[in-house]
Computed example of a mutant assay.
Amino acid sequence: MVKLTTKKVLSEKEFQLISIREEVIKAVEESGIQNGIVLVMSAHTTAGVMVNEDLECLHVDMEKMLDKMAPVVADYAHSHYLPSYGATGGNAPGHLKQMLTGYEVVFPVIEGKALIRFAQDIYFAEFDGPQLRTYYIEVMGE
């Protein structure tokens, strides 16, 4: 059996970690699936889904590290005119940050519950906001 839930989130900043842990837990519980997996996936190439501990100081460290690896100002090829878009792409750092963090996470589902541990928060990671974004929670199993 497969149950797909589509969710929306409105980011408020260019970089923002939005906890979606409770939405994932609820989707698994409401799915009726007892054993399998849950996949959480971003629908965007400048936003990701990631797992880490929920500490504000860690959020700051993650943002600083990602900014060092993909700074806002750099000589990006994506920052030039793109004939396919008819405009200049200005969100290369968002694409690169998503590539570094990933766009999906997977957890086991055991006895109707997602196996998410205490220090594991699930984040929708915005790298090109503010924007209205979409992510999917797909529960698969029996």
Rank of each mutant, 00 (worst) to 15 (best):
N35G: 08
G102S: 10
V72N: 02
D75T: 00
A27Y: 08
F107W: 07
A43D: 11
E56A: 02
V2P: 14
P71V: 03
E12D: 14
E22M: 03
E53T: 08
A119S: 12
S19W: 06
L17E: 05
E53M: 03
P93N: 02
K7F: 06
L96C: 11
E29L: 13
Y85H: 13
G129Y: 02
L39Q: 10
M140N: 08
Q120G: 09
M41V: 10
V139R: 04
Q120M: 08
E142M: 00
V73C: 00
I122S: 07
I25Y: 03
A87H: 10
T134Q: 09
L132C: 14
K68H: 12
T88V: 11
P71Q: 03
M65Q: 15
L4G: 00
H59A: 03
Q98Y: 14
N35A: 08
G141S: 04
Y135W: 13
Q131R: 12
A47E: 10
I18G: 00
L17G: 01
N91R: 01
A70M: 03
S31D: 06
L58W: 04
E56K: 04
S19P: 00
T46I: 01
A77N: 05
A43R: 14
T134Y: 09
H95I: 13
L96R: 04
G94C: 05
Y103T: 14
Y135N: 07
V24T: 09
F15L: 04
E14G: 02
H95V: 10
K13T: 13
S11T: 10
H80R: 02
T6N: 13
E63C: 02
E23C: 05
L10Y: 13
P71C: 05
H80W: 01
S42D: 06
F124C: 04
A114C: 11
H95R: 09
C57T: 08
V51Y: 06
Y136F: 14
A114S: 15
F15H: 08
L132Q: 13
G102F: 09
V40S: 08
T101I: 15
L10N: 13
H80G: 04
V38G: 10
M41S: 15
K7V: 00
Q16S: 10
Y136N: 13
I110F: 14
D128Y: 05
L66Q: 00
K13P: 06
D54K: 01
V49P: 00
T46F: 08
K113W: 10
A92Q: 03
L10M: 12
Q98H: 13
E29W: 10
M65T: 15
Q16W: 02
F118H: 14
D128A: 00
E30M: 02
K7E: 12
E104P: 14
V24N: 00
D54M: 01
R133C: 08
A77R: 06
H44Q: 15
E138L: 12
G32M: 03
K8S: 09
D121M: 04
E63I: 12
S11G: 12
T6G: 13
M65E: 14
